[in-house]
Amino acid sequence: MIKVGVVGMGIRGQLYAQTVQQNNYAKLQAVSDAYEPSLAAACERFGAKGYSHIEHMLEQEQLDVLIVATPDYLHKAPVLAAASKGVHILVEKPFSTSLEEAEIMYSAVQKSGIKCMVAFENRWNSPFVAVQEAIRQGEIGRVLTMNSRLNDTIYVPTKMLKWSQGSSPGWFLLPHSIDLALWFKGVKPVKVFAAGSKGKLAGMGIDTYDSIQAIISFEDGTHSSFTTSWVLPESMPMIYDFKYEIIGSDGALYVDLADQMVRQASSSYRHMHTLGTSINGQLGAAPNYMLNAFIDNVRLDTEPLASSADGLLNTRVVAAIHQSIKSGISIHIQ
């Protein structure tokens, strides 16, 4: 039985804890959160031991896996603590919001020899899995360009996340879009140029970008565009709007996650979220498949689909995007 601990008992941490409890090969051993009410609620809900400090949890519990579901900018300490104990890690994206920290984390993971998966969950999201298979089979020829649009409603930075000022749509949303691009192409990114705008959120006392646009150049001479924002109105049919266009030499692929096949009309109009709908009480969304895959990686000694190397590269690209916004020039990716 794979013994699992979770640090960060917000929305994601609770989802991961529930997933572990449904896995036949894993046991939720302990949970950790610095905010006492969240910790107490998690302990009661999941019947697990609780710790205010991750270091204490790692000292007291013989964990096989630590899931890091802390806010974007608080991944370093738990990752380093787990790596020092030889505990395998699933860490939320982005790997880090600091390139310097990401490099330290990557080195610690490599030195320890543990398995580390970065939670690029869309690699387990059925529409994108189908796209990846079509590309792999050569159905659209060589990928020439990609255009991605991933937006959230303003509910996310103002109500859902208490820590959005420590992040940005670049750090919170772009890692998904960029990881998919790197997964689809399998070609190294070499340069980015980006622009970002502040206004609406800053006027609400949240000093972060409203939106970001970026162009990434790849070593094969192709380019792709990425747009992200988190200031859409709350009246949108869904909390997110994710569209992806992949144009190849022999065809094209189009993904629209806003259209999930069911629309509900009553006093208001919305798209019903159907991807990952629980069936017979079993969770079946991309994050659940991802975590179950990582538990299999640990118990079967196989390599994760989304590794710490993928996480480090992703952080390099997103960090370069933010640097380009501030400098107004193109940034080469090291």
Rank of each mutant, 00 (worst) to 15 (best):
T97C: 10
T97H: 03
T97L: 01
T97W: 02
S98F: 06
S98I: 09
S98H: 06
L99S: 04
L99D: 04
L99W: 07
L99Q: 04
E100K: 07
E101H: 12
E101L: 03
A102I: 06
A102C: 10
A102T: 10
E103M: 05
E103F: 02
I104C: 12
M105T: 03
Y106K: 13
Y106P: 00
S107K: 13
S107W: 02
S107N: 10
S107T: 03
A108F: 09
V109A: 15
S112L: 08
S112I: 09
I114Y: 11
K115R: 14
K115F: 00
K115A: 13
K115L: 07
K115E: 05
C116Q: 01
C116R: 03
C116E: 04
C116S: 03
C116Y: 01
C116F: 01
C116T: 06
M117I: 01
M117A: 15
V118C: 15
A119P: 08
A119Y: 05
F120V: 03
E121W: 04
N122S: 13
N122T: 15
N125C: 15
S126N: 09
P127A: 04
P127W: 00
P127H: 05
P127S: 11
P127L: 07
F128V: 04
V129L: 08
V129F: 00
V129M: 08
V129P: 03
A130D: 12
A130N: 06
V131S: 00
E133T: 08
E133C: 02
E133H: 06
E133W: 04
E133K: 10
A134I: 03
A134R: 10
I135V: 14
I135H: 00
I135E: 02
I135P: 00
R136V: 10
Q137P: 01
Q137S: 09
Q137D: 07
Q137A: 02
Q137I: 01
G138P: 03
E139G: 01
I140L: 05
I140H: 00
G141T: 15
R142W: 06
R142F: 03
V143I: 12
L144F: 04
T145S: 13
T145W: 09
T145F: 07
M146Y: 08
M146S: 11
M146R: 05
N147L: 06
S148I: 03
S148L: 00
R149N: 13
L150R: 14
L150A: 06
L150V: 10
N151L: 05
D152H: 15
D152V: 01
T153P: 12
I154T: 04
Y155Q: 04
V156S: 14
P157M: 08
P157K: 05
P157G: 05
K159A: 02
K159N: 06
M160D: 14
M160G: 05
M160Y: 14
L161Y: 10
L161H: 07
K162V: 12
W163Y: 09
S164V: 00
S164Y: 14
S164K: 06
G166E: 15
G166W: 05
G166K: 13
S167G: 07
S167H: 02
S167K: 07
S168K: 06
S168E: 09
